[in-house]
Nucleic acid binder design. Structure first.
Lengths: 246, 246
DNA sequence: AAGCCGCAATTAACTCATACAAATCGGTAG
DNA sequence: CTACCGATTTGTATGAGTTAATTGCGGCTT
């Protein structure tokens, strides 16, 4: 009814850049779920109704639901409908989920958890990387550090270089599943620098600890690398912690 | 053409139990990709053609592709088609992906990687659990251990209890992202026992190390828990390693 | 003459609408 | 208390029309 007379939709900014409609809907719903606007256990409106509300076809809506379902956010069965899954079912390590979580202001609990994870994973990864890194890995790490030093963490390129540095270390650890944690680590790294910029007018210079870590990996000394990375994360945590738990 | 004269499909066991068609197709393709039957960079046949080959509608096929895409296995764009993503894009920590990987004989490299991850994550998780566990957590761990002792790892219930024990520890660590690693840990645990059963006619008794770990968590001693879990995983690794790297 | 840029045609995925099938829950009758 | 039956919701199928990216052609620039 009344489809020609105008669309009654668009309270969500769907269309949007590059992304296809199913992707946009998935993102919008994902963000809403992670923000708590749909609590675990809640039943979503029926396909037909909800798709119409969003102003998209049932096809596109269903594909969006498949995406969310694949990430463990929702489960749908005939007659029962589609309901938001329990939190323990959510795949919190999925890159999209993390991105959606950080779309709005993420919960302090999540940031704390990610830091804890980082403190567990990165030192071990650094130790492995010290043993297994190739010459190319070292070159990429060195380049990333140079970029970081040149542009600083106040710039986009500088932050990207920081991400790259940590990412190359994970790659150099030569462990597929471990590398899949990169998005989680990246999220923690990002928010470290964001909080740092917020907190201090004069943020601590990150280069010394990064260089020290780099040197241990060049030297191929696993235990030194583990210690250096532990110290690096500890410092980052010290910068961040007072701001999330004041 | 010839749709009425019979279906030219079914070289894959699609239909199958409980699962919907899109789920079955996703699983079949996922397994094929993880088994290397579709290498990264390969372009899949077009929607119409491939869906017809599989004997399903384009709708079901597309929803399957959305699932795979959500897990990072494939990427699809207009004109280019759908292609298998690079390995580093795969979300190796996704429960389904791991399940699919272990559908066929998994690669030794993956098992080794998962063990490495387990050795990194579980001791830290045990330490956190020792600090944060509730009375209910302890009760569940204790019950799981009892079940494990009663039925042994040769039985399905016994193995399930083992899984539960490790899983409760992850839950007791009170860290969402960490808990999302449970499927990865579970995969490693499973294959430990599988290899153990294969290797020795008289497998090592797993109860002493498990009990020791449990006691440290009851005592609330993080460092003791870390050490106990490290020892537990080390023993499991010792049982497994000679069989995957002979 | 060689190379670069922009335009159009092609091709694939994407979206939509509709019809029908299957599954599941609740109530009702036996 | 059990078994069936109907209503409701997701699941599957199909065909038509849309959008986006790549390819190659043709004209322009160097």
């Amino acid at each position: 009814m009344g489809r020609d007379s105008g669309r009654e939709d668009i309270n969500l900014p769907l269309a949007s850049a590059g992304r296809r409609i199913h992707g946009s809907v998935a993102r919008a719903l994902g963000v809403a779920i992670l923000a708590g606007r749909h609590a675990p256990g809640d039943v979503l409106p029926g396909e037909i109704e909800f798709a119409e509300q969003l102003g998209v076809s049932r096809t596109a809506y269903r594909e969006a639901i498949r995406i969310l379902s694949a990430k463990g956010l929702v489960e749908s069965r005939p007659k029962t409908g589609t309901r938001v899954s329990a939190r323990k079912r959510w795949n919190l390590l999925d890159p999209d989920i993390l991105a959606w979580a950080f779309e709005g202001e993420p919960s302090e609990a999540l940031i704390r958890d990610l830091f804890e994870l980082r403190m567990i994973v990165e030192p071990a990864a650094a130790a492995l990387a010290a043993e297994r890194r190739s010459i190319q890995d070292l070159a990429r790490m060195g380049h990333a550090l140079d970029e970081m030093a040149r542009h600083g963490l106040a710039t986009e390129v500088g932050r990207a270089a920081d991400q790259t540095f940590h990412n190359v270390i994970l790659e150099a650890a030569r462990n597929g599943p471990l590398l899949s944690l990169s998005s989680s680590i990246a999220a923690a790294v990002t928010w470290t620098t964001i909080f740092k910029q917020r907190g201090h007018a004069q943020p601590r210079d990150p280069m010394p600890d990064h260089r020290a870590l780099y040197d241990t990996i060049v030297a191929g000394d696993p235990e030194a690398a583990r210690a250096a990375m532990t110290e690096l994360v500890r410092l980052a945590l010290a910068d961040t912690e007072p701001l999330i738990a004041p």
